[in-house]
Design a protein around this nucleic acid. Structure first.
Lengths: 194, 194
DNA sequence: CCTTTTCCATACGTGCGCGTACGTAAACCC
DNA sequence: GGGTTTACGTACGCGCACGTATGGAAAAGG
C-alpha cells in the first residue's frame, strides 16, 4: 500500500480537494449550488483540472456523497463500539451533533435535494442509520419500541430543525451553548409522570 | 368595494394565480425552482401573460411572499383571539401544523433560501412570530421564561425537522397520524420529575 | 535530451431561462 | 364600428454554466 512512485506533473489539486469543496458548497447552498466553475475559482484552478479528475458534475456529486457517507458511518461505528451506556451515548451524540453546524447543514440540504436519485439513496441510508442509533438508545433506556422510535424521530427532527433555524432565522434559533442541548436531552428522556 | 366594471379583455390568468403557483414551486423545490417559463406551462399560458402582471421574477417572489405572510398572520391572529387556555392552543397548533405538509414545506424551504434579502426578511418575521406564540403558551403553562423560550424553539425545530424528514427520507419519518403529534406534545409539556 | 505521462489552461459550442420588443385578440365605450 | 384599454402570444438577445477540444507545462524514464 505504499505510494507507487509518481510520474509526470505533480497535482496542484486532487480529487479530494474537489469533493470537499463540493461538500462545502452543499452545506452552503444545496446541491444546485455546486458549480464547477465556481469551485474552480475557489480552489484557484480551472475547469481543465476538474474534467481531468472527474467525468462530469454528476460524478463529482456522487463521489462527494460517497466520501461523506463513508466518513460518517466510519465515525459513527467507531464511536458506537466504545460506549455501552445508552444515556452516555445520547449525552455524547446530542450536544455534539447540535453544535456541529456544518454536519447538520449538510444533512439538511441533502434532505432537501433528495429528488436527485443518488442524493436520495445516500441520504436515506444515512438518515435511517442515525435514527436507528437513536432508537436503540431510547429502547435501551426502557422505552417501548413504539415510544423509542417516535422519540428517535423526534430527536432527529430537532437536530434538523435546529439547523434550519440557525441557517435561516438565527434570531429565533437557540444559542449554540450547552444549555440548549442539555434541555433537549432532558425533554427527550423524561417520561410522563406516572 | 364592489368590483368596478372591467374594461378590455377578461384575464385568463390573474396575478394571484401566478403567486399561488410560485408558492407551490417554492414548496416543491425552493425559490430557485420558481421559473417563469415553467410556471407558464403549468398555468397553460405564456411569458407574455407573466410580464403583463409582474415587472420581473423578483417581483413575483416578493408578491408571493407577501401573500403567504399576510394569509398566515391573519389566520394565526384570528385563532389566537379565540382561545385563552395555553394547553388548548398547543393542542390545536401542534397536531394541525405537523399534519400540514405544504405549510411546513414552505417554511422549511424559505429558511433554506434566506440569503435572498426579501426572503430572509419575511421568514425572519414569520418565524419570530410563530416562536413567540409557542413561547407564550409554554410560559402560560408555568415554565420559566428561559425554559419557555427553549421549549418553543425546540417545538418549532421539531415542526421544521419533521417536514425535512418527510420530504427527503419518508421511510425514517414519523407517520402523519395523530399519535406522533400527541407524543410530541406530551414530551414538550412534561416537566422533569421533581 | 527527448519522449512519455500527468496535469492544467484556454477557447469554443450548446442549452436553458430571464427579460424585451412587438404584434394580436377580446372586450368595452362612444 | 373605429378607437382604446386590457391581456396574451411569439421571437429574439443575452448571460451563465456545462461540457469538449486542444494545446502546453512540469516531472520521470530511457
Amino acid at each position: 500500500m505504499t505510494d507507487k512512485p509518481r510520474r509526470g506533473r505533480p497535482p496542484k489539486t486532487t480529487a479530494e480537494d474537489w469533493e470537499r469543496a463540493a461538500l462545502d458548497a452543499v452545506a452552503a447552498g444545496g446541491v444546485a449550488s455546486v458549480s464547477v466553475e465556481a469551485l474552480a475559482v475557489g480552489l484557484g484552478t480551472t475547469k481543465g483540472s476538474f474534467y481531468w479528475h472527474f467525468a462530469n458534475r454528476e460524478a463529482l456529486i456522487e463521489a462527494a456523497l460517497h466520501r461523506w457517507e463513508a466518513e460518517h458511518t466510519e465515525r459513527l461505528a467507531g464511536y458506537l463500539d466504545t460506549v455501552a451506556d445508552p444515556m452516555e451515548r445520547l449525552r455524547y451524540t446530542f450536544p455534539g451533533s447540535l453544535a456541529d453546524q456544518r454536519g447538520s447543514a449538510v444533512a439538511l440540504t441533502l434532505l432537501a435535494d433528495a429528488e436527485d436519485p443518488s442524493v436520495g439513496a445516500a441520504i436515506a441510508r444515512v438518515t435511517a442509520r442515525r435514527v436507528a442509533v437513536l432508537e436503540r438508545a431510547f429502547a435501551d433506556l426502557g422505552f417501548t419500541p413504539g415510544q423509542a422510535r417516535t422519540r428517535a424521530q423526534t430527536a432527529y427532527a430537532i437536530y434538523l430543525g435546529t439547523a434550519a433555524l440557525r441557517r435561516g432565522a438565527p434570531d429565533s434559533a437557540p444559542e449554540p451553548d450547552a444549555d440548549y442541548a442539555a434541555t433537549v436531552l432532558e425533554i427527550l428522556t423524561t417520561a410522563e409522570r406516572g
